[in-house]
Each structure stands twice: as structure tokens, then as C-alpha cells.
Design a protein around this nucleic acid. Structure first.
Lengths: 225, 225, 225, 225
DNA sequence: GATGAATGAGGATTCATTCAT
DNA sequence: TATGAATGAATCCTCATTCAT
């Protein structure tokens, strides 16, 4: 994707094509820089000048591609979501609700954890517009998209749950996962691995009874035999 | 801390206090204003001028009582912790480990939830120095104090757990509680109540197996039969 | 002087007397504090709050005795000049112009040096209103008084010199002495002593030829024959 | 120092300079403004806003080129020293120690005086960090560089002097010259000229005996036999 | 497009000074 | 008197954003 060998076409669309190629690189550069700065300082404390500096371009250049600071976060979130969907989206869409919960959670959480470790900015954006006035809610792509996805998955398992209850459970689950991811990212090595396990354990325990109680009256027993 | 009266008089603290009465009121006023602004904008985006304005005083007055912005957060955290201890600390210190988990959690979480609903800034400060360089860790009284308390309580239940494991479980629990509190605060009325229940359920499910497995080989059964 | 045992008189002048006694102590306290702060930070960077703090009183109290910051410097200068006059003024007024120059300089510079070492603020104020707009010239008691004194002494030695020339020589001499005093104060121990000697040597060499050439037709040899 | 172009291009410094031309002009403008403000108010009382205003730019522009107030003084000092070296440095390095003292002093002091009259800020910066905490010593380029130069020149004349003595004499000389320059700048027209002569006379008289007594066993007469 | 200069409002903080008690 | 609270303009400096080249 970053390499579009821009064949010299006639006249009209040639220039834009070349431009867009260079522009794409710039944008990617800027977003990568933004990811770093957001992680280090948080959205509010991150300065567009710092992002431009980190990207090795001038402030003016940054504003040639983004109308303002928020747009950077929005676009970064959009791209990370996109990358997430490309990498793990298929698996997500094809979740098999008949799987035992622990396997299902593994199939969901393992990629999510891995993706967050590789893209720590994802976690930052995942938290969404905690503070009103920062990133407008409707612009908070990552948070709402993931939450919706969680809700949908849960809906498959709990078809009888009222929408409000579903939303509540999804929010609760997602909130815990976000917290767990933060802890995971805050640690390293074996400690990090232990937190990964712990997060999955927690989610399993939380959702286990719900799932067990609901569709399949299987002989599901405790999750840590 | 903001006031060191150091009068070389002999008398008690009565005389010097009269002068400070106004100041004490101002401090309370400023902290209340800070609580509001912190809740609305978060620590980073909160401006001392905004706090002063909200308190109805000039910027200079604010700095008569606090040396800088962080000190405001620290003092606010300190006061909230103090209030928390005064209101619910005794109950916390006297937790009866022989209680069934759900009762124990009620005795811990109900007050915590109530306190957060009454003091929403508590939740803000509870999150601690998410971003390195904001509020210094050692100054992050609320977060570390509560985390330590959680760890201690858990230690009573899991005397055989390794320290690292204990810390992990405490962090995980605390993280989830923080997330849950955020959700509670983000909702109102019956929805808020439902979230309260949900949070307790989640913590119960997470800790239940740990506790059951540990000291008392009682006939404890799952909590959602 | 600081101790006026205020005997209880009738009515009218009793109160003021007592007040003045306490006030005198306060003023002395404040001026001493100001001396310290001026030495440490210079006049511009010295804050009235810092002076009050150093004096152990409140800002309000300071302004009960001085209308503004400049007045503090002016009064401090006045008092130091007063002390200077009381201690060494007599000797100065009774300078014997028939003395050989080196003895005369000793009789002038030795006390001046000693006084400056004991009252470092004197040197600070001696420099006068280097910067227009700080301490108004007419308020710069120390500088102008000392300069005038130097001029008068020199006038005794050089009765034939034109006023402008006299003023020039006085300024030059005074300027060098100020510089030398700064160096003296900047050093300690034997190095300080060496600077004392050096300063006197310099002044002697500067004034020697002038004095020699003037009243007494001695066998003075000049360095620029 | 304020500009690190770091273009990864191959070309010479021609291209990158074109962009900086405006900036270079701004820097010069700002430094000129700073020189004026420093002269009028002194370093401490000079405000960056005042400098920006004097330069006809906004505060932000100033900070695009200088990280803080001290850096302005440092750069100004550096440029003035540079200009000084370019204009008179060669003559200084090629001082002929066999010259008679008065000619030598002329060759040193005349340019110095002239340079100070043309660049009054030089005198301000020459005084160095009189007050601890203002301009850090190591940043006080003008003062230390000139003092060192004086010391070196004197060293040529007094090869047998102990280092401490040399330093003392250099300090004394430099201090007097600074004082004299101040007086020169404080006057105008013929009075200024007269002060110029007076300063040279004073230095000559101070150093004459030292020099005479040292290398050339001339028939020098000292005033303190 | 790219650059870096420019902006000016705003942020934290200080300070001389005044006021209420 | 003395205190300490109060003020608000001014300080240094930053930042999102715009402009000229």
C-alpha cells in the first residue's frame, strides 16, 4: 500500500495520483508520529508541533493533511480500526457461538491483546472520549466500533437478553478489557504474560455464568478446574 | 500543608485560626471548584484560571493557597481520601474475612460506589497518573492508597498467594472497579442502579473462585445459581 | 536606638511614643531583611513579599511602614549612610589634607572597606540607579552622597582643578572603588585581603600624580614624563 | 544555535538558507530590540514581551528563535563578541608586548571604548552575572571572555607573576575599565571624550608600575617606595 | 506540497499593592 | 497595628493554527 509506483499517465489524473502517493506516505508518517506522541503524553497534552517534529515535517505540512488536532486522532483511530479489521476482522465476523466460552474468548482476546501490544496507541484511543469536549463521541471511532462489536458478539450468546442489559454487559466487559489491556501494557516480560492470562480469566468468569445460563444448558462447570 | 501558621505565641490554635477561617473557606471553595473542573475537563486540560474563575476568585488568590496545579490535585485527593476514611474507613479496617464473599463485597463496594457518586472527582483522581509526567506517582495518593487497601484485603483472603500474584489480582480488581465506577457515573437513575449491581456481580464472579479455592473449604456455591 | 523604654506619659504623646518604639523595631527588622534580599537577588528581582517573609511579618505590615518597594531601598540607603556617618563621618570630616596620600587613602578606604564588608547591602546601593527607571536618581542617597564626599575631599587636594575635571576624577575614583569593593566582597579570606590591598594600590596610583602635581611642590615623579 | 537545518539533502547551505533568510533577519531584529531593552531596563527587568514588542513581532515569534530570555542574552553576547573579534580581534591577538605601555593601552582601549559606544549593550553584558542566579556564569560569554583576554595580555607583561596575582590584577583592571566605560556611556560630547582620556590615564597609572618593574629594568619610579 | 515564520490568545505563575478583619 | 486574604496586571512561555514563499 505505501508503494504506488505512479506510472506517468496523460495529464489530468496523473498529478493527483503522484501527489496522493506522496501524500499517503506523509499521512502515514504523521499518524505514526501521532501514535507515539499520544502514547507518551495522552491526547490533550500532545501538541501538533510535537507530532510534526516527531514526523520530521513542519507544522504547516501537518495542517496540509489534517484540519486540526482532533482529525489526527480520528484518522489514526480509523486506520487502526481498519488494520484491526483487516488482520482479525474476518475471524471476528466468523465467530462460532457454539464454541465453549474459553475457546471463544481466546479467539477474541488473544488477537486483541496482541494487536494492542503492537499498537499501543490503540489502547489510548480505545478509551474514547472520557472527557467531554475532547474527542467528540461521534468521532470516537475505536471506542464505539469495538463496543458495538462486543455487544454484537454477546448478542449472539444471549439472544434473550434485553437490549439495555446487553448493552450493560457489553460496556462492563469492554471496560474491564480496556483496564486489563492497560495493565498488560504497563508490564513486561513474564509479568505481562501473567496479566494476559489474568485478563482472560476475569472475562471468562464474568461472562461464564451468563453464557452457561443462557442458550446451551450444557454441563459447563467452573472455568478453573 | 498550604498553611504553616508558625506563630511564636503561646496560645492554642484558636487565635491563629480566626484569620485562617476565611482562608480555610477559600481552600474548600477552590477545591470544590477544582473538583468540578477536573471532572469536566480532566486534570491536564483543567486550567488554574478556570478553577479560580469557577471559585469566583482571582488567579492570585488561588496561588495564595496552592503552589501549583498539581498541589491542587494532591490536596483534593488528600481531602477526599480523608473524607473517605472518616466516613467508611472504620468499616474497611474492620472487615470480617469470615463473611461470605458477596456480603463482604457489598460492605466494600456499596460505600465506595456511593462515595464516588457523591464525589465524582474521586473517580477522576482514582485513575492516577495514567500518563507519565502528569501527577507524580508518589503524589497520587488516591490511586495508590486504594490499590494498597485492595491488596491488603485480598491478602487476608489469599494468605498463600505469592506477592506478585496478589498484586496482579489487586490491580485487576481495582482496574475493573474503576471502569465500573466510570460506567456508573456515566448513567443515571435505574440504569445507574443496574450498573451498580453489574459491577458487584462482576467482581464477585472474578474473586469468587479465588476465595472459594483458598482458605475456607466451605460449601460455597456459585453466586448465580 | 532600637530600645526606647517608653515611660508611660500622660495621654497624647504616650501612645505615639510606644507605637513609634515598636514601629522602629519593625522598620529595623524590615530593613535588615531587605538588605539581605537585595544582596541575594538585587533590587529588581527582590520582591516585597520575600522581604516581608524574611522579616517574619506579613506583606501588609511592610506596607504599613513603606509606601512601596523603592522607599525601602531609599530608607535602607539613608540608614546605612547614617550609620556610616556616625561611625566614620567624623574622621572623614576631619581629614588632614597635609597627610601623605597613602595615609590619607588608608584613613578613607580602610573604614569604607570594612563598612562594606559588614554591610554588603551598602555596596549594592552604592551602585546607584544604574538603570534609569529603577531608583530615581534623587532618591539614590548612598551613591550621590558618597560621590559628593569623594568630590569634596578631592577638592581639598586639587583646589585649582576645574569643577568638571574634579567631578570627572571623583566619578572615576568612585567608580573604581565600587568595582574594587565588589571584588573584595566576592572573595574571602586571604584573597579578600589581597584585593583590599590591590584596591588601595590602584587608587593610590591613580590619584598619586594628581595630588603630587598639585599643592605640594614635592619631588613627585610622574609615570608619564 | 537556534537553527539546526538538518535537511537530508545533498546540496550546500544555499537552499536551506533561503527559507531562513527571513528568520535570520528576525533574529537580528530581535537581538537589536533586546539590546535596546537590556540597555534601558537591565536584564532582569527586561521582559520578553517588551523585546518582542520593540522588535514589532508577537511573543510567539520570539520564542520561535529563542527558547527563553537567557538564550537571548547569551546569543546577543555571542554575536557582540563575534563582532568584536571580527573587528578588533586580530589587533588584539597581535599585541606587541614590546610597545610602551601607553601605546599598548591605546591599541587595546581605544577600540574597546569605540565598540562600546557603538554597542552599548556590550557594556551591559560585560558586567556579567553580578547577581547569582541571573545569567549563569558559564553562559556569561562576554564577561569571562574579556576577562580572560585581559588576563592573557597581562600575562605577557608579567611572566613572573603568580597566577592568583595575575588574576587579581586582571580583575581589578577589568573592573575599572567596566566602570570607566559606564561613565563614558553616561556622558556625551566633549565630556565623553574627557572620560575616555581619564579612563586610559587611570589604567595606565595602575598598570605602569607593574609593567615597568617587571620585564624591562628601566628607570621606572614607583609611588610606593 | 512543503517549509518555517507568524500569530495571538491562553496557560501557569508572580508580584506590588490594597483591603477587611 | 498586624495579619493574611485578595487583586489583577504582568511575566514567561506554549500551542493550535495560518500565511507567505
Amino acid at each position: 500500500m505505501p508503494e504506488a509506483p505512479d506510472t506517468e499517465e496523460q495529464a489530468g489524473p496523473a498529478q493527483p495520483r503522484r501527489r496522493q502517493a506522496r501524500g499517503e506516505r506523509r499521512i502515514a508518517q504523521l499518524l505514526e508520529a501521532a501514535a507515539g506522541v499520544f502514547c507518551r503524553s495522552g491526547y490533550t497534552a500532545a501538541s501538533t508541533n510535537a507530532i510534526a517534529r516527531e514526523a520530521g515535517v513542519s507544522p504547516g505540512t501537518l495542517y496540509q493533511f489534517f484540519p486540526n488536532k482532533e482529525a489526527i486522532a480520528v484518522e489514526l483511530g480509523g486506520r487502526l480500526m481498519q488494520r484491526w479489521r483487516e488482520t482479525h476482522g474476518a475471524a471476528f465476523d466468523a465467530i462460532d457461538p457454539s464454541l465453549p466460552l474459553d475457546e471463544l474468548l481466546d479467539s477474541v482476546l488473544d488477537p486483541l491483546i496482541e494487536f494492542n501490544c503492537e499498537n499501543p496507541a490503540f489502547a489510548v484511543l480505545m478509551h474514547g472520549s472520557e472527557i467531554p469536549g475532547r474527542i467528540t463521541e461521534e468521532h470516537d471511532a475505536v471506542h464505539s466500533a469495538l463496543l458495538e462489536r462486543v455487544e454484537r458478539i454477546l448478542g449472539d450468546f444471549l439472544p434473550d437478553a434485553a437490549p439495555a442489559e446487553l448493552s450493560r454487559i457489553a460496556n462492563m466487559t469492554f471496560s474491564s478489557v480496556k483496564g486489563g489491556l492497560e495493565l498488560i501494557l504497563a508490564h513486561e516480560g513474564t509479568e505481562r504474560d501473567a496479566y494476559k492470562v489474568e485478563l482472560k480469566t476475569m472475562v471468562q468468569r464474568y461472562l461464564g455464568p451468563l453464557v452457561d445460563a443462557a442458550p446451551e444448558p450444557a454441563d459447563a462447570r467452573t472455568h478453573t478446574p
